[in-house]
Amino acid sequence: MKILVCISQVPDTSTKVVLKDNSTTIENAGVSYIINPYDEWYALIRAIELKESGIASDVDLVTVGKANTEPVIRKALALGGDKAIRIDAESTDPYLTAVYIAEYAKSMDYDLILCGKESIDYNNGSVGSMLAELLDMDYIGFATEIKIEGNTAVVKREIEGGEETDSCKFPLVISCQKGVAEARIANMRGIMAARTRPLTVITPTVDDALTSILSYELPPAKAGVRLIDPADMDELVELLHAEAKVI
C-alpha cells in the first residue's frame, strides 16, 4: 500500500503575528515554523505506524511551498517517510493547493492520502476534500481512528454528540485529528537519515487560484483578567451582571 501524507508549514503557535504592507502580508522575519500539528501528530505518525507494522510499503510526503519550507519538510522526514516532494508554489489558496497536489498525485497510484483536518494558520480545512474530488477518490473527514482491514479502511470520526464508524475501500483521502495517533519525538537516527532521504522539487504547471487574500486583521487585544476574592461572592455576581452582562 502506498501512502501520501500532505504536510504544511505553519508558524510556531507562540509566534506573535506582525502585519506589514498595509496589513496585506505577514512579517516573516523572526517567525519560526513548525509542521502543522494535525499533519504531524496524526496523519504522518499514523502513516509511519502503518509502515512499521508492514501494512504500508511506501510513505511519501508532499508539501506546497517555496524553498523556505524545506527545513520543515526535513523535520517531517526525520520523523519518518521515504521521500518528500515539494511543489514550488505559495499555498495560500486551498483550492490551488489541492490542484497542485492532485496534479502530482494523479499518476502515482497512492492507495491512501492522509492530511490534517486543517492547518493551524489559515484554518480552511478544505484541502483534503477538494483533493479527493480532483483525484476522484473517496473522502472521510475528521478521523479520530484509522484501521486497515485488507483493502478497506475502517475509520472512526467524531460527529455531534457521538462517534460514527465508516468503512471505505481504497483509494481514499482521510483528514485526521486528535486520536488517530500519538505525537512522537524525532530520534537521532531519524534526524541523521533525514538528510539522505530524497526531496524532489517540482514546478506546478497551472495557476488559477480561486481566492486571493485582500488583507489581514489581528484580533482585538485581550482584556485584562480581574481577580475577585473567593469570599466576595456578591461582588462577583454584581460584576457578572452589571459589567459582563452574562447573568
Partner: peptide
C-alpha cells in the same frame, strides 16, 4: 545548522513531554 537545530528540538520536546 539545521540538523543541530533538530537535535536541540528533540531535547526540548523530550523535556516537555
Amino acid at each position: 545548522n539545521e540538523e543541530q537545530q533538530m537535535i536541540a528540538e528533540t531535547c526540548v520536546n523530550f523535556l516537555a513531554q
